[in-house]
């Protein structure tokens, strides 16, 4: 692991949410993909598994979405979503009967900042030797105060919008932590 890769770990953010109740599964999938593409990330689904379980359907959905900021920095937002006991139900909403799903969801969100994703500092011996100095002094503030913060706000905003879509009580409107 190179010195610059260290920042990939320092700027790594991980959070998760769990929800059990009624929701619209297809709408949730569409919403999450739409948010990622709407915020200029390249959507990449790495895994989708669906199988019947004892009480309904079990789903695993994993994605790794990236966004190139410039020649040096790249953001990643990943999620690992699992649904258990997914079943179709009919619920009453505002006096009308609506078709929804019920089940248990767990979504793990990860954000990562990749520095030097093209390996420009790896290509020459001189740059390799200067790595430690660059990492400790030149680009440290740029990473910690600039990009890591921006990525942190973006991840918070995404998670909050997913919570609002699921109509969770902890979804905040207009939070200053959303950038």
């Amino acid at each position: 692991m190179t010195r610059l890769d260290k920042f990939k770990d320092d700027a790594q953010l991980h959070t998760y949410l769990k929800y059990k109740g009624f929701f619209d599964w297809k709408s949730l999938m569409k919403f999450m993909r739409g948010w990622i593409e709407g915020n200029h990330y390249t959507f990449m689904e790495t895994e989708y598994k669906e199988k019947p379980d004892q009480y309904g359907i079990e789903i695993e959905w994993r994605t790794t979405n990236n966004k190139k900021i410039d020649g040096l920095y790249q953001y990643y937002i990943k999620w690992y979503l699992r649904v258990w006991d997914l079943d179709d139900v009919e619920v009453e909403e505002n006096g009308k009967k609506v078709k929804k799903n019920q089940g248990r969801i767990r979504i793990e969100f990860d954000a990562m900042l990749e520095v030097d994703y093209e390996g420009q500092f790896e290509s020459r011996n001189f740059f390799k030797k200067m790595e430690k100095f660059l990492a400790d002094h030149i680009i440290k503030e740029d990473i910690e105060s600039g990009h890591a913060d921006a990525l942190y706000y973006e991840l918070n905003r995404f998670k909050n919008e997913v919570e609002a879509h699921l109509k969770m009580e902890t979804a905040t409107e207009g939070s200053l932590y959303h950038g």
């Binding site: 959070t15 998760y16 949410l17 769990k18 929800y19 059990k20 109740g21 009624f22 998670k159 919570e163 699921l166 969770m168 009580e169 902890t170």
Partner: peptide, 9 residues
């Protein structure tokens, strides 16, 4: 930093 967020109906 939200470490855990669970909601069960």
């Amino acid at each position: 930093r939200v470490m855990k967020n669970e909601e069960h109906v």
